[in-house]
Simulated assay, not measured.
Amino acid sequence: MFTGIIETLGEVINLKKDQENLHITVKSDITNELKIDQSVAHNGVCLTVVAINNDEYTVTAIKETLDKTNIESLELGDKINLERAMKLGDRLDGHIVQGHVDETGVCKSIKDENGSTVFTFQYNSNNNNVTIEKGSITVNGVSLTVVNSKKNEFSVAIIPYTLEHTTFKNFKIGTKVNLEFDVIGKYVARLTELK
């Protein structure tokens, strides 16, 4: 389980296809604290550490992950948001994040609001995912509050600190992002479907 509070940025330094899997090697300032078999969220995608070498570590994404996230579009040199799983007893500063991406979305607009930046994202309305005003959403692993909710679109307001310390600073119109909708909202939506 994660909180959506990004610890640091990593840099993709190697990508290796192996049948339908993708091995991703990341250079990071938290590598020395990792161990083999540990879960780390990469742009919100929970992946298992399979190898460590000095300040670099490797994780493997399977076809299911590649099909449902933006991981397959990573390129050498890309920066990615990193978060280690939370420890029992830690404060839950963000919200409950599983590291299981529901779908991808696309950045539709970026607007400077004199102290914050408002990003609007569009997603597939056929997947029955929903957002609500002041509800939680995870975008590329970042825990955020929805400020404008529509049927297949939502906006979030980013403070300067988050903009500077996450991959949001690299977003452009058309950027594909990983979305994990609020787990409680997903259960409520599913229960409503079953009635």
Rank of each mutant, 00 (worst) to 15 (best):
residue 35 K to Q: 13
residue 21 N to K: 12
residue 42 H to E: 02
residue 108 K to Q: 14
residue 102 D to L: 09
residue 2 F to N: 06
residue 135 G to H: 08
residue 53 N to K: 13
residue 155 S to M: 11
residue 38 Q to H: 05
residue 83 E to Y: 10
residue 112 D to T: 05
residue 85 A to H: 03
residue 126 N to S: 15
residue 147 V to L: 07
residue 93 D to H: 09
residue 18 D to W: 00
residue 155 S to W: 09
residue 183 V to P: 01
residue 186 K to T: 01
residue 12 V to S: 08
residue 161 Y to G: 01
residue 39 S to A: 15
residue 153 E to G: 03
residue 29 D to F: 00
residue 135 G to L: 07
residue 17 K to D: 10
residue 107 C to H: 02
residue 126 N to R: 11
residue 93 D to F: 09
residue 55 D to M: 01
residue 104 T to E: 10
residue 14 N to G: 09
residue 139 V to C: 12
residue 39 S to K: 06
residue 70 N to D: 14
residue 100 H to V: 08
residue 18 D to T: 09
residue 193 E to C: 00
residue 168 F to L: 13
residue 125 S to C: 02
residue 141 G to T: 10
residue 125 S to V: 10
residue 192 T to Y: 01
residue 179 L to K: 04
residue 101 V to C: 06
residue 3 T to V: 07
residue 79 K to L: 14
residue 156 V to N: 04
residue 173 I to L: 05
residue 67 D to P: 02
residue 21 N to S: 15
residue 42 H to F: 14
residue 171 F to N: 10
residue 71 I to F: 12
residue 151 K to Y: 12
residue 62 I to V: 14
residue 71 I to N: 03
residue 55 D to C: 02
residue 140 N to C: 13
residue 100 H to G: 07
residue 171 F to P: 01
residue 161 Y to Q: 14
residue 129 N to F: 12
residue 25 T to Q: 14
residue 180 E to G: 04
residue 40 V to N: 05
residue 98 Q to G: 14
residue 83 E to C: 10
residue 125 S to W: 00
residue 23 H to D: 06
residue 89 G to F: 11
residue 180 E to N: 04
residue 120 T to G: 00
residue 95 H to D: 11
residue 94 G to R: 05
residue 17 K to Y: 03
residue 86 M to E: 06
residue 98 Q to Y: 06
residue 190 R to D: 05
residue 86 M to A: 11
residue 122 Q to E: 15
residue 49 V to K: 02
residue 27 K to Q: 14
residue 81 N to K: 08
residue 193 E to L: 10
residue 123 Y to C: 05
residue 23 H to Q: 09
residue 128 N to W: 04
residue 99 G to E: 10
residue 121 F to N: 03
residue 56 E to R: 11
residue 133 E to Q: 10
residue 187 Y to C: 05
residue 68 K to R: 15
residue 11 E to K: 15
residue 50 V to H: 00
residue 134 K to V: 00
residue 118 V to F: 00
residue 129 N to G: 06
residue 105 G to C: 11
residue 86 M to K: 09
residue 104 T to A: 03
residue 154 F to H: 07
residue 164 E to P: 08
